[in-house]
């Protein structure tokens, strides 16, 4: 009984895809509040204008309480999705909202032909690391003092199943890899 009541009080969470200019200040507010890195308005515009279908917002009683911002594109011969920002307000955490947001983005990436999805997370951000771990992300690299605040990051990667993997054969790639620009991929 008690639980039902609470549920009712809380109300349902509504998820919407990025719908235009009116959503931009909502996203910016959330991210500015919760993430350590400072982003200019151009960074937000870069993402939501080019990939509006990969950005989602979560509302509770009309208030925006969570958002995910992503991109996708060619990266060294792979078509790769990238999760740039994921935020859920503190009182709303632990209810699976972030998982739902990010799952929606990943599904669109998968349907759009992405081979993998990557992102960076602070090594101290246990909540995010656990969330992505459950979704099948692997810690591919550690990036030394990646953030402006001096904290290391993990590069997380989710590889989608693909046919050529099952053959178990690989060819040595003789490639002179260019220096990665890890911070701005």
């Amino acid at each position: 009984m008690e639980d039902d009541k609470l549920e009712e009080e809380e109300g349902a969470i509504e998820y919407v895809s990025y719908g235009g200019e009116h959503h931009l200040p909502l996203i910016m507010n959330l991210v500015d509040q919760e993430l350590s890195e400072p982003y200019s308005i151009f960074t937000y515009r870069y993402f939501v204008y080019l990939w509006p279908n990969l950005s989602f917002l979560a509302f509770h009683k009309g208030k925006c309480i969570g958002t995910v911002v992503c991109k996708m594109g060619e990266h060294r011969n792979t078509f790769r999705g990238y999760i740039a920002m994921l935020v859920v307000l503190k009182p709303y955490r632990g209810k699976g909202i972030a998982t739902e947001l990010v799952t929606r983005s990943i599904k669109v990436m998968m349907e759009s032909g992405c081979e993998e999805v990557t992102l960076e997370a602070e090594v101290t951000n246990n909540g995010a690391l656990a969330l992505y771990g459950r979704l099948g992300f692997v810690r591919a690299k550690r990036l030394f003092r990646y953030y402006l605040n001096g904290v290391d990051a993990f590069r997380l990667k989710l590889l989608f199943p693909r046919p050529e993997l099952s053959s178990g054969r690989f060819i040595i790639e003789n490639e002179d890899m260019p220096q990665e620009s890890e911070r701005h991929q």
């Binding site: 998968m110 771990g133 979704l135």
Partner: peptide, 30 residues
């Protein structure tokens, strides 16, 4: 732990991709 998007095989490949590409050791795969 099985995520909704991939399997152990993809995890294996992601962890050892660089070694697998260099055939280290030879004939060893998932």
């Amino acid at each position: 732990v099985l995520g909704p998007f991939n399997t152990e095989q993809e995890r294996f490949f992601q962890h050892f991709e660089l070694l697998q590409k260099a055939c280290i050791p030879d004939q060893m795969s998932y």
